[in-house]
Computed example of a mutant assay.
Amino acid sequence: MGVLVLVVDDEPDVEALFRQQFRRDLRAQRFVMDFANSAADALSRIAGTIEQSLILILSDINMPGMTGLEMLPRVKEIRPDVPVIMITAYGDPDTKRKAMESGASGLLTKPIDFSLLREEIDTRLQQAD
Rank of each mutant, 00 (worst) to 15 (best):
63 M>D: 00
41 D>A: 00
39 A>E: 04
16 A>N: 04
97 R>A: 14
4 L>E: 03
34 D>I: 07
25 D>A: 14
58 L>I: 12
114 F>D: 00
75 V>A: 04
81 D>K: 14
106 G>E: 02
110 K>T: 12
123 T>S: 08
53 S>H: 14
17 L>D: 10
19 R>E: 12
129 D>P: 13
87 I>V: 15
99 A>N: 00
125 L>P: 12
62 N>L: 03
103 G>T: 02
30 R>D: 09
14 V>R: 02
16 A>C: 05
69 L>M: 08
61 I>T: 08
83 P>Q: 01
30 R>Y: 11
74 R>D: 07
33 M>N: 09
116 L>T: 07
20 Q>H: 15
1 M>P: 14
69 L>F: 12
37 N>S: 04
39 A>T: 12
70 E>N: 08
30 R>A: 11
114 F>I: 04
116 L>A: 02
5 V>W: 03
77 E>T: 15
85 I>Y: 13
14 V>S: 07
92 D>T: 11
50 I>K: 14
72 L>W: 00
15 E>C: 06
63 M>L: 05
80 P>S: 07
45 R>F: 02
41 D>P: 12
77 E>V: 15
119 E>N: 11
112 I>W: 10
18 F>H: 06
90 Y>R: 03
72 L>Q: 05
38 S>R: 11
4 L>R: 08
115 S>W: 10
15 E>H: 08
101 E>R: 02
107 L>Q: 03
100 M>L: 07
26 L>Y: 15
124 R>M: 08
41 D>R: 00
16 A>I: 05
111 P>S: 04
71 M>V: 12
28 A>G: 06
64 P>R: 02
125 L>E: 08
29 Q>S: 12
32 V>G: 07
112 I>F: 11
55 I>T: 00
76 K>Q: 09
122 D>Q: 13
20 Q>T: 14
15 E>N: 03
15 E>R: 14
92 D>K: 06
48 G>A: 14
69 L>A: 08
94 D>R: 09
51 E>D: 15
61 I>L: 00
108 L>H: 14
1 M>N: 13
97 R>H: 13
36 A>M: 01
105 S>V: 09
25 D>F: 15
38 S>D: 06
88 T>I: 01
66 M>I: 11
6 L>G: 03
99 A>V: 05
81 D>L: 04
10 D>G: 15
121 I>H: 10
42 A>G: 08
122 D>M: 02
14 V>C: 03
21 Q>M: 02
32 V>A: 06
30 R>G: 05
118 R>K: 14
41 D>M: 00
74 R>K: 13
74 R>Y: 02
48 G>R: 05
46 I>Q: 03
117 L>C: 05
127 Q>Y: 11
46 I>M: 00
35 F>I: 07
57 I>C: 08
118 R>V: 02
96 K>R: 15
62 N>A: 03
87 I>L: 07
57 I>Y: 09
17 L>M: 04
82 V>T: 13
90 Y>N: 12
116 L>I: 05
115 S>V: 03
10 D>T: 12
86 M>Y: 10
99 A>R: 05
3 V>T: 14
118 R>N: 10
55 I>L: 04
5 V>M: 00
118 R>C: 00
121 I>T: 09
24 R>Q: 13
110 K>W: 10
12 P>G: 03
57 I>T: 13
129 D>T: 09
27 R>V: 12
36 A>P: 13
114 F>G: 07
79 R>Q: 06
63 M>I: 00
100 M>I: 04
2 G>R: 05
85 I>D: 01
47 A>H: 11
